[in-house]
Nucleic acid binder design. Sequence first.
DNA 1: CTAGAACTTCAAGTAAACTTGAAGTCAACC
DNA 2: GGTTGACTTCAAGTTTACTTGAAGTTCTAG
Lengths: 159, 159
Amino acid sequence: MTMPDRLTISELSGRSGVAPSALRYYESVGLIAADRTSGNQRRYRRSTLRRVAVIRAAQTMGVPLATVAEAFAALPGQRDPTAADWERLSRRWRTALDERIHVLERLRDQLTSCIGCGCLSLERCSLFNPQDRASRLGQGARYLLGDDSAKVVDESRDR
Amino acid sequence: MTMPDRLTISELSGRSGVAPSALRYYESVGLIAADRTSGNQRRYRRSTLRRVAVIRAAQTMGVPLATVAEAFAALPGQRDPTAADWERLSRRWRTALDERIHVLERLRDQLTSCIGCGCLSLERCSLFNPQDRASRLGQGARYLLGDDSAKVVDESRDR
DNA sequence: CTAGAACTTCAAGTAAACTTGAAGTCAACC
DNA sequence: GGTTGACTTCAAGTTTACTTGAAGTTCTAG
Protein backbone atom coordinates (compact mmCIF):
# COMPACT_ATOMS: atom_id res chain seq x y z
CA MET A 1 0.00 0.00 0.00
CA THR A 2 3.00 2.26 0.16
CA MET A 3 3.72 4.20 -2.97
CA PRO A 4 1.62 2.71 -5.73
CA ASP A 5 3.10 2.78 -9.17
CA ARG A 6 0.04 4.19 -10.86
CA LEU A 7 -2.50 6.39 -9.20
CA THR A 8 -6.26 6.16 -9.44
CA ILE A 9 -8.12 9.41 -9.93
CA SER A 10 -9.11 9.62 -6.29
CA GLU A 11 -5.55 8.96 -5.20
CA LEU A 12 -4.29 11.75 -7.41
CA SER A 13 -7.10 13.94 -6.20
CA GLY A 14 -6.29 13.20 -2.58
CA ARG A 15 -2.60 13.84 -3.00
CA SER A 16 -2.92 16.96 -5.09
CA GLY A 17 -5.92 18.48 -3.40
CA VAL A 18 -7.61 18.87 -6.77
CA ALA A 19 -11.12 17.47 -7.28
CA PRO A 20 -11.55 14.46 -9.57
CA SER A 21 -13.88 16.47 -11.78
CA ALA A 22 -11.16 19.08 -12.18
CA LEU A 23 -8.64 16.39 -13.08
CA ARG A 24 -10.95 15.06 -15.78
CA TYR A 25 -11.36 18.59 -17.00
CA TYR A 26 -7.59 19.04 -17.13
CA GLU A 27 -7.39 15.92 -19.22
CA SER A 28 -10.10 17.21 -21.54
CA VAL A 29 -8.03 20.30 -22.27
CA GLY A 30 -4.85 18.31 -22.72
CA LEU A 31 -3.04 19.32 -19.56
CA ILE A 32 -2.62 15.84 -18.17
CA ALA A 33 -3.03 12.32 -19.51
CA ALA A 34 -3.69 8.88 -18.11
CA ASP A 35 -3.37 5.29 -19.14
CA ARG A 36 -6.48 3.15 -18.89
CA THR A 37 -7.07 -0.19 -17.23
CA SER A 38 -8.72 -2.97 -19.21
CA GLY A 39 -11.94 -1.69 -17.66
CA ASN A 40 -11.37 1.85 -18.96
CA GLN A 41 -10.44 3.45 -15.65
CA ARG A 42 -7.72 6.07 -15.46
CA ARG A 43 -4.33 5.22 -14.03
CA TYR A 44 -1.98 8.19 -13.66
CA ARG A 45 1.77 8.12 -13.74
CA ARG A 46 3.37 9.51 -10.64
CA SER A 47 4.82 12.34 -12.69
CA THR A 48 1.29 13.60 -13.12
CA LEU A 49 1.39 14.71 -9.51
CA ARG A 50 4.12 17.13 -10.40
CA ARG A 51 2.28 18.31 -13.44
CA VAL A 52 -0.82 19.04 -11.41
CA ALA A 53 1.23 20.91 -8.84
CA VAL A 54 2.73 23.04 -11.59
CA ILE A 55 -0.75 23.71 -12.97
CA ARG A 56 -1.91 24.98 -9.58
CA ALA A 57 1.23 27.01 -9.14
CA ALA A 58 0.58 28.61 -12.50
CA GLN A 59 -2.95 29.45 -11.48
CA THR A 60 -1.67 31.12 -8.36
CA MET A 61 0.49 33.22 -10.63
CA GLY A 62 -2.55 34.14 -12.66
CA VAL A 63 -1.64 32.15 -15.75
CA PRO A 64 -4.71 30.85 -17.61
CA LEU A 65 -4.86 27.12 -18.30
CA ALA A 66 -4.61 27.65 -22.04
CA THR A 67 -1.22 29.25 -21.50
CA VAL A 68 -0.15 26.43 -19.22
CA ALA A 69 -1.15 24.00 -21.95
CA GLU A 70 1.00 25.89 -24.43
CA ALA A 71 3.93 25.72 -22.10
CA PHE A 72 3.38 22.03 -21.47
CA ALA A 73 3.51 21.45 -25.20
CA ALA A 74 7.24 21.98 -24.87
CA LEU A 75 7.48 19.06 -22.48
CA PRO A 76 8.15 15.59 -23.86
CA GLY A 77 4.98 13.72 -24.68
CA GLN A 78 6.23 10.20 -24.22
CA ARG A 79 9.00 10.06 -21.67
CA ASP A 80 8.56 11.64 -18.25
CA PRO A 81 9.93 15.17 -18.08
CA THR A 82 13.41 15.50 -16.70
CA ALA A 83 14.63 18.13 -14.29
CA ALA A 84 16.00 20.04 -17.25
CA ASP A 85 12.58 20.02 -18.90
CA TRP A 86 10.98 21.49 -15.83
CA GLU A 87 13.71 24.01 -15.51
CA ARG A 88 13.19 25.37 -19.00
CA LEU A 89 9.57 25.83 -18.08
CA SER A 90 10.35 27.52 -14.80
CA ARG A 91 12.75 29.94 -16.44
CA ARG A 92 10.08 30.89 -18.89
CA TRP A 93 7.62 31.79 -16.16
CA ARG A 94 10.07 33.29 -13.77
CA THR A 95 10.28 36.55 -15.70
CA ALA A 96 6.54 36.93 -15.97
CA LEU A 97 6.22 36.22 -12.28
CA ASP A 98 8.82 38.84 -11.47
CA GLU A 99 6.90 41.35 -13.51
CA ARG A 100 3.65 40.51 -11.84
CA ILE A 101 5.20 40.88 -8.41
CA HIS A 102 6.64 44.20 -9.47
CA VAL A 103 3.27 45.47 -10.60
CA LEU A 104 1.70 44.45 -7.31
CA GLU A 105 4.47 46.13 -5.36
CA ARG A 106 3.99 49.36 -7.22
CA LEU A 107 0.28 49.06 -6.64
CA ARG A 108 0.84 48.51 -2.95
CA ASP A 109 3.03 51.56 -2.66
CA GLN A 110 0.54 53.63 -4.59
CA LEU A 111 -2.28 52.33 -2.53
CA THR A 112 -0.70 53.89 0.49
CA SER A 113 0.90 56.97 -0.94
CA CYS A 114 -1.67 57.98 -3.51
CA ILE A 115 -4.95 56.96 -2.05
CA GLY A 116 -3.90 57.01 1.53
CA CYS A 117 -2.11 60.32 1.68
CA GLY A 118 -5.00 62.35 0.45
CA CYS A 119 -3.13 63.74 -2.52
CA LEU A 120 -6.25 63.77 -4.52
CA SER A 121 -4.65 65.04 -7.63
CA LEU A 122 -4.77 62.28 -10.15
CA GLU A 123 -1.92 63.43 -12.30
CA ARG A 124 1.07 61.13 -12.58
CA CYS A 125 -0.47 58.65 -10.19
CA SER A 126 0.14 55.20 -11.54
CA LEU A 127 -2.78 53.79 -9.65
CA PHE A 128 -4.94 55.67 -12.06
CA ASN A 129 -2.95 54.74 -15.07
CA PRO A 130 -4.47 52.03 -17.24
CA GLN A 131 -1.01 51.11 -18.50
CA ASP A 132 -0.30 49.57 -15.15
CA ARG A 133 -2.89 46.97 -15.85
CA ALA A 134 -0.58 45.44 -18.42
CA SER A 135 -0.07 42.66 -15.96
CA ARG A 136 -2.21 39.96 -17.44
CA LEU A 137 0.72 37.63 -17.67
CA GLY A 138 0.89 35.00 -20.33
CA GLN A 139 0.91 36.96 -23.54
CA GLY A 140 3.37 39.58 -22.54
CA ALA A 141 2.90 43.27 -23.11
CA ARG A 142 -0.31 43.31 -25.03
CA TYR A 143 -1.49 46.42 -23.29
CA LEU A 144 1.69 48.31 -23.84
CA LEU A 145 1.01 48.74 -27.51
CA GLY A 146 -2.24 50.62 -27.53
CA ASP A 147 -0.88 53.59 -25.62
CA ASP A 148 -3.72 53.78 -23.24
CA SER A 149 -1.50 55.63 -20.85
CA ALA A 150 -1.98 59.21 -19.77
CA LYS A 151 -5.62 58.89 -20.57
CA VAL A 152 -6.72 59.13 -17.00
CA VAL A 153 -4.70 62.21 -16.34
CA ASP A 154 -7.04 64.61 -14.74
CA GLU A 155 -6.81 68.12 -13.51
CA SER A 156 -7.25 67.65 -9.79
CA ARG A 157 -9.54 67.62 -6.87
CA ASP A 158 -11.58 64.55 -7.49
CA ARG A 159 -12.92 63.10 -4.37
CA MET B 1 -14.91 72.28 -22.36
CA THR B 2 -12.20 71.97 -19.77
CA MET B 3 -13.10 69.91 -16.77
CA PRO B 4 -16.81 69.29 -16.93
CA ASP B 5 -18.58 69.03 -13.66
CA ARG B 6 -20.41 65.84 -14.50
CA LEU B 7 -19.15 63.21 -16.87
CA THR B 8 -21.10 61.40 -19.55
CA ILE B 9 -20.56 57.69 -19.80
CA SER B 10 -18.24 58.00 -22.76
CA GLU B 11 -16.23 60.67 -20.99
CA LEU B 12 -15.84 58.45 -17.95
CA SER B 13 -15.03 55.56 -20.23
CA GLY B 14 -12.44 57.58 -22.08
CA ARG B 15 -10.78 58.82 -18.94
CA SER B 16 -10.80 55.54 -17.09
CA GLY B 17 -10.07 53.23 -19.96
CA VAL B 18 -13.09 51.14 -19.01
CA ALA B 19 -15.73 50.33 -21.63
CA PRO B 20 -19.17 51.93 -21.28
CA SER B 21 -20.74 48.49 -21.11
CA ALA B 22 -18.48 47.66 -18.19
CA LEU B 23 -19.43 50.89 -16.44
CA ARG B 24 -23.11 50.05 -16.80
CA TYR B 25 -22.31 46.64 -15.44
CA TYR B 26 -20.52 48.15 -12.46
CA GLU B 27 -23.59 50.20 -11.77
CA SER B 28 -25.79 47.13 -11.98
CA VAL B 29 -23.78 45.48 -9.24
CA GLY B 30 -23.76 48.58 -7.10
CA LEU B 31 -20.13 49.57 -7.51
CA ILE B 32 -20.77 52.99 -8.95
CA ALA B 33 -23.76 55.26 -9.30
CA ALA B 34 -24.85 58.10 -11.53
CA ASP B 35 -27.36 60.92 -11.55
CA ARG B 36 -29.65 61.16 -14.54
CA THR B 37 -30.44 64.01 -16.87
CA SER B 38 -34.04 64.88 -17.55
CA GLY B 39 -33.70 62.62 -20.57
CA ASN B 40 -32.51 59.67 -18.44
CA GLN B 41 -28.88 59.76 -19.44
CA ARG B 42 -26.17 59.08 -16.87
CA ARG B 43 -24.06 61.89 -15.48
CA TYR B 44 -21.24 60.79 -13.24
CA ARG B 45 -19.66 62.75 -10.43
CA ARG B 46 -15.97 63.29 -10.84
CA SER B 47 -15.36 61.16 -7.77
CA THR B 48 -16.56 58.19 -9.81
CA LEU B 49 -13.31 58.37 -11.72
CA ARG B 50 -11.47 57.55 -8.54
CA ARG B 51 -13.88 54.79 -7.69
CA VAL B 52 -13.38 53.18 -11.06
CA ALA B 53 -9.63 53.44 -10.70
CA VAL B 54 -9.84 51.71 -7.33
CA ILE B 55 -12.00 48.99 -8.86
CA ARG B 56 -9.39 48.32 -11.54
CA ALA B 57 -6.63 48.38 -8.98
CA ALA B 58 -8.52 45.82 -6.93
CA GLN B 59 -8.89 43.61 -9.98
CA THR B 60 -5.18 43.78 -10.57
CA MET B 61 -4.76 42.55 -7.03
CA GLY B 62 -7.09 39.70 -7.77
CA VAL B 63 -9.98 40.91 -5.67
CA PRO B 64 -13.36 39.88 -7.08
CA LEU B 65 -15.90 42.64 -7.70
CA ALA B 66 -18.23 41.32 -5.02
CA THR B 67 -15.50 41.91 -2.46
CA VAL B 68 -14.86 45.38 -3.80
CA ALA B 69 -18.55 46.08 -3.43
CA GLU B 70 -18.41 44.98 0.20
CA ALA B 71 -15.50 47.27 0.83
CA PHE B 72 -17.26 50.14 -0.89
CA ALA B 73 -20.21 49.64 1.40
CA ALA B 74 -18.05 51.24 4.08
CA LEU B 75 -17.77 54.39 1.99
CA PRO B 76 -20.32 57.16 2.48
CA GLY B 77 -23.30 56.80 0.20
CA GLN B 78 -24.28 60.40 -0.05
CA ARG B 79 -21.29 62.67 0.34
CA ASP B 80 -18.19 62.13 -1.74
CA PRO B 81 -15.58 60.02 0.05
CA THR B 82 -12.88 61.98 1.82
CA ALA B 83 -9.21 61.15 1.86
CA ALA B 84 -9.75 59.47 5.22
CA ASP B 85 -12.44 57.27 3.74
CA TRP B 86 -10.14 56.11 0.99
CA GLU B 87 -7.37 55.59 3.45
CA ARG B 88 -9.41 53.24 5.59
CA LEU B 89 -10.08 51.26 2.49
CA SER B 90 -6.48 51.21 1.42
CA ARG B 91 -5.32 50.06 4.84
CA ARG B 92 -7.74 47.20 4.66
CA TRP B 93 -6.38 45.98 1.36
CA ARG B 94 -2.78 46.73 2.01
CA THR B 95 -2.38 43.71 4.27
CA ALA B 96 -4.02 41.38 1.82
CA LEU B 97 -1.85 42.76 -0.95
CA ASP B 98 1.26 42.23 1.12
CA GLU B 99 0.25 38.63 1.67
CA ARG B 100 -0.41 38.06 -1.98
CA ILE B 101 2.95 39.50 -2.91
CA HIS B 102 4.56 37.30 -0.33
CA VAL B 103 2.92 34.19 -1.71
CA LEU B 104 4.07 35.05 -5.21
CA GLU B 105 7.60 35.69 -3.99
CA ARG B 106 7.73 32.33 -2.30
CA LEU B 107 6.36 30.77 -5.42
CA ARG B 108 9.00 32.48 -7.50
CA ASP B 109 11.77 31.22 -5.27
CA GLN B 110 10.34 27.73 -5.29
CA LEU B 111 9.92 27.83 -9.01
CA THR B 112 13.65 28.11 -9.34
CA SER B 113 14.89 26.12 -6.42
CA CYS B 114 12.39 23.30 -6.31
CA ILE B 115 11.47 22.70 -9.89
CA GLY B 116 14.57 24.12 -11.41
CA CYS B 117 17.21 22.46 -9.30
CA GLY B 118 16.13 18.96 -10.04
CA CYS B 119 15.54 18.08 -6.42
CA LEU B 120 12.68 15.93 -7.39
CA SER B 121 11.74 14.98 -3.90
CA LEU B 122 8.41 16.55 -3.21
CA GLU B 123 8.62 16.58 0.55
CA ARG B 124 8.52 19.94 2.24
CA CYS B 125 8.31 21.71 -1.09
CA SER B 126 5.82 24.51 -0.76
CA LEU B 127 5.21 24.58 -4.47
CA PHE B 128 3.44 21.32 -3.97
CA ASN B 129 1.61 22.42 -0.90
CA PRO B 130 -2.03 23.29 -1.43
CA GLN B 131 -1.91 25.56 1.58
CA ASP B 132 0.01 28.04 -0.48
CA ARG B 133 -2.99 28.57 -2.62
CA ALA B 134 -4.66 30.37 0.24
CA SER B 135 -4.03 33.53 -1.66
CA ARG B 136 -7.49 34.28 -2.95
CA LEU B 137 -7.51 37.58 -1.15
CA GLY B 138 -10.69 39.10 0.10
CA GLN B 139 -12.02 36.70 2.64
CA GLY B 140 -8.81 36.08 4.45
CA ALA B 141 -7.55 32.66 5.38
CA ARG B 142 -10.37 30.48 4.20
CA TYR B 143 -8.03 27.80 3.01
CA LEU B 144 -6.02 27.78 6.17
CA LEU B 145 -8.82 26.23 8.15
CA GLY B 146 -9.39 23.02 6.29
CA ASP B 147 -5.85 21.77 6.86
CA ASP B 148 -5.29 20.76 3.33
CA SER B 149 -1.61 21.01 3.95
CA ALA B 150 0.81 18.12 3.96
CA LYS B 151 -1.54 16.26 1.69
CA VAL B 152 0.72 16.36 -1.26
CA VAL B 153 3.70 15.04 0.66
CA ASP B 154 5.09 12.27 -1.39
CA GLU B 155 7.94 9.89 -0.98
CA SER B 156 10.26 10.94 -3.75
CA ARG B 157 11.42 10.46 -7.28
CA ASP B 158 8.49 11.74 -9.19
CA ARG B 159 9.47 13.05 -12.53
C1' DC C 1 -35.56 71.68 -37.10
C1' DT C 2 -33.37 67.85 -38.46
C1' DA C 3 -29.53 64.48 -39.11
C1' DG C 4 -26.52 61.75 -36.84
C1' DA C 5 -23.98 60.56 -32.90
C1' DA C 6 -24.55 59.19 -28.38
C1' DC C 7 -27.41 57.52 -25.20
C1' DT C 8 -31.13 54.16 -23.01
C1' DT C 9 -32.91 49.21 -21.51
C1' DC C 10 -33.19 44.41 -21.71
C1' DA C 11 -32.13 39.90 -23.15
C1' DA C 12 -28.94 36.92 -24.65
C1' DG C 13 -24.25 35.47 -25.64
C1' DT C 14 -19.20 34.61 -24.27
C1' DA C 15 -15.13 32.67 -21.94
C1' DA C 16 -12.79 30.31 -18.27
C1' DA C 17 -12.76 26.81 -15.07
C1' DC C 18 -15.07 23.98 -13.22
C1' DT C 19 -19.24 21.17 -10.80
C1' DT C 20 -23.36 18.36 -10.88
C1' DG C 21 -26.34 14.75 -12.26
C1' DA C 22 -27.91 10.80 -14.77
C1' DA C 23 -27.19 6.37 -16.25
C1' DG C 24 -24.37 2.94 -16.42
C1' DT C 25 -19.73 -0.10 -15.61
C1' DC C 26 -15.82 -1.84 -12.83
C1' DA C 27 -13.19 -3.45 -8.82
C1' DA C 28 -12.52 -5.16 -4.19
C1' DC C 29 -13.79 -7.50 -0.30
C1' DC C 30 -16.24 -11.00 2.44
C1' DG D 1 -20.64 -14.09 -6.44
C1' DG D 2 -22.90 -10.37 -4.85
C1' DT D 3 -22.93 -5.80 -3.09
C1' DT D 4 -20.91 -1.53 -2.29
C1' DG D 5 -18.01 2.06 -3.51
C1' DA D 6 -15.29 3.90 -7.10
C1' DC D 7 -15.19 4.61 -11.58
C1' DT D 8 -16.96 5.92 -16.58
C1' DT D 9 -19.16 9.36 -20.13
C1' DC D 10 -21.91 13.08 -21.56
C1' DA D 11 -24.78 16.92 -21.20
C1' DA D 12 -26.06 20.63 -18.79
C1' DG D 13 -25.53 23.99 -15.10
C1' DT D 14 -22.62 27.64 -12.36
C1' DT D 15 -19.95 31.83 -11.48
C1' DT D 16 -17.55 36.01 -12.78
C1' DA D 17 -17.11 39.71 -15.57
C1' DC D 18 -18.29 41.27 -19.09
C1' DT D 19 -19.87 42.15 -24.47
C1' DT D 20 -23.23 42.28 -28.15
C1' DG D 21 -27.42 43.33 -30.38
C1' DA D 22 -32.00 45.04 -30.99
C1' DA D 23 -35.12 48.57 -30.63
C1' DG D 24 -35.91 52.78 -29.26
C1' DT D 25 -34.76 57.83 -27.18
C1' DT D 26 -31.97 62.06 -26.45
C1' DC D 27 -28.56 65.41 -27.36
C1' DT D 28 -26.01 68.57 -30.22
C1' DA D 29 -24.29 70.82 -34.30
C1' DG D 30 -25.49 72.99 -38.42
